[in-house]
Design a protein around this nucleic acid. Structure first.
Lengths: 131, 131
DNA sequence: TAGGTACCTTACTTTTTTGTCTGTACTTGC
DNA sequence: GCAAGTACAGACAAAAAAGTAAGGTACCTA
């Protein structure tokens, strides 16, 4: 364990929660494992080709240590490892749903605002050209 | 704006949400502003002496840019600035509640597990001493 | 002229997180 | 022998986030 996680200040439980799900790919991984359960290391790699092997395994190990996913090794050749979410992980996934909802809404608002700003800029430019 | 935020992969809206609340102190700040609304810069500083002025203002500005808090300047001497949460920020706070709940539960479980492990270790040591 | 308050800004350093690359152990197939 | 496939491990470097320290404004008091 070479982990010295960034100390998050605790505001009513949010600190620990963000410590668990805060990594760059963790939420995505939890969600994907929850969908495709049980799934293998290579499967996750294929599902998310952007993530490097090192980060994938690092996040998987941390999530396992945090008790939100389960890792099962089958002593075969070639090796086979399956990941699944624990009940605790499933709860976390559920708790994450409202946040995801908010994120989606926020994204839409942001895009609309950007489009609006672009339109306003265009209109202003036209006005300036006429004036 | 000198911001080049860490690009979070989008898993169904969680990416944008974590981008907004992911900073070390942001959740705490949102929560505190929501409690003590409206509150001044110096007030926040006193409420959370751990956070440096730089991070405080940086996070406040980012949260303002993300539209979750509102900043109002009163041109007085000495200067007076008040922060409050926007409706969007209030929604986010609400969406964060289940996550905070989970975090609290997770923390309790973790502590219990640690205590259990310590107890087991003690018992094992006693057993070994007897054996 | 110096010091105090409130709210920042900037330059610079440290810490943390993420990414790249190489290597392991084993088997199958050519 | 060599490549390919599986599931990793570890060294090192780049990038991002956070922290430190100092200064700046604008006005007031002594």
């Amino acid at each position: 364990m070479e982990k010295k996680q960034r100390q998050l200040p605790d505001s009513c439980g949010l600190g620990p929660a963000l410590a668990v799900i805060g990594g760059k790919w963790k939420a995505l991984l939890l969600w994907q494992i929850h969908q495709a359960q049980p799934c293998r290391f290579g499967e996750l790699k294929r599902l998310q080709p952007e993530i490097s092997e090192k980060m994938l395994i690092q996040h998987l190990r941390e999530m396992e240590a945090d008790g939100i996913i389960h890792r099962e090794v089958f002593h075969q050749v070639p090796p086979r490892v399956e990941y699944s979410v624990t009940p605790e992980g499933a709860e976390l996934d559920l708790a994450l749903a409202p946040l995801a909802e908010w994120g989606k809404k926020h994204q839409e608002r942001t895009e609309k605002a950007k489009a609006g700003a672009a339109r306003a800029a265009r209109t202003a430019a036209e006005g300036a050209a006429r004036g």
